[in-house]
Write a protein that binds this DNA or RNA. Sequence first.
DNA 1: CCAGACGTTGTT
DNA 2: GTCTGG
DNA 3: CCAGACGTTGTT
DNA 4: GTCTGG
Length: 421
Amino acid sequence: MCGRYALALRPSQIRQQFQDYNIPVDDAPEDEGDDAPRQSYNFAPGYHGMVYRVDVGDRGSAHREVATTATTSDRKELEERSQDQEADVSSDGLTNSAIQEPSSFGEDKETSSNSRPQYKLQSMKWGLIPFWTKRNPDYAAVLKTINCRDDSLAQPGGMWNTMKKGKRCIVVVEGFYEWLKKGPKEKVPHYVKRKDGKLMLLAGLWDCVTYEDNGQRLYTYTIITTSSNEQLRFLHDRMPVVLEPGSEEMKAWLDPKRHEWSAELQTILKPYRGELEVYPVSKDVGKVGNNSPTFVIPVASKENKLNIANFFQQKGAAGKVKPEATVKKEGGDEEKKTVEELQKTTDDGGMDTSGKGIKREAESPSPSEAPPTKKAVTGSVSPVKARLKISATKNPVRSPAKGKGKGDGSQKITKFFGNSA
DNA sequence: CCAGACGTTGTT
DNA sequence: GTCTGG
DNA sequence: CCAGACGTTGTT
DNA sequence: GTCTGG
């Protein structure tokens, strides 16, 4: 599946890639700033990553987003959906109205920028938290939503029900890691990326939650998994759903008009058919917090420390490293220390590629909120088991008559992406 | 009616 | 939020 | 996802 | 083993 990946590019670089693929980007985070995603060769759950999705814009003015072919029922549903917490955060008041600069991206040979949806890159936190969640959930609970199985979307109801209809997205990665189990103890990390070198665009879902005690919006996402393709079967039985940049499938996946789950959408969630590159990498990627461009470099076999040492020597940062220190020995302790030294040296020396990958998340939503961690308790009381749970609103509302029926809304839309199906 | 789950992977 | 179980 | 911690009493 | 942190 997908529990760790690489995303070292800056937002502006990602945006450029999208434009190279002829994929429109109407908005994106700044390279520096609070809403910038983390850049890391060792990107882990809980980090803020890069998500691409339709930008619904503010509520109430949904009309302007409706394509000319839209029916009145489409219009109605658009407005219904717009109450789902989806006000634009990126708008500091200026946004709305006329800011649609159609200039920046690819060929806007058409003046169609008024009739197509707006798309944006956005920083969100990995590990989906549904909008109805009341309090900051348990860490373990969040871990269980870093992925979403394709077959669980095929079933009606469930946790994903609202998101699969209206909050589909693309998760942008350069490649992902998978640990091959060679024994009960030994795991060898492998890196998986596209052979053609393009960004890997993963099918995902997103949501936005506001906890009771804190008015902040928190955007989160999950990555959809499916069966592995033939190429990855030796590694693992699951893999993320990889979409072709600019393809009709990608367009359909993001299409806001498709506001019901359908066989077509389900069909998109299939094992990747294209060519991948798969190879073992440094075991150091296993330790979260380590971050090095060497993590995406192939490693000869089990002895990967040597490659790392070579890399650092290239950078001129590891002059003091003795060659023999990198040789694998029985004393695991000693060699670990050596690697730490290596990496520490690099951090100080400033490796341009890692850049702000060292940046830490500023997670505290508000200074007033107590940390969710366990508190020290006096006396002989056993450790607190204050399990923070996701609790739903228990709300005495009668179930509204479901606005059911109606067509699939599979209207034809004006073209945006370069077609490459 | 209310209370509680709602999720994934991997290992057994 | 929606659905299930009691 | 993996790696790493997992504890107490008493004194300052 | 279970839980936390990244």
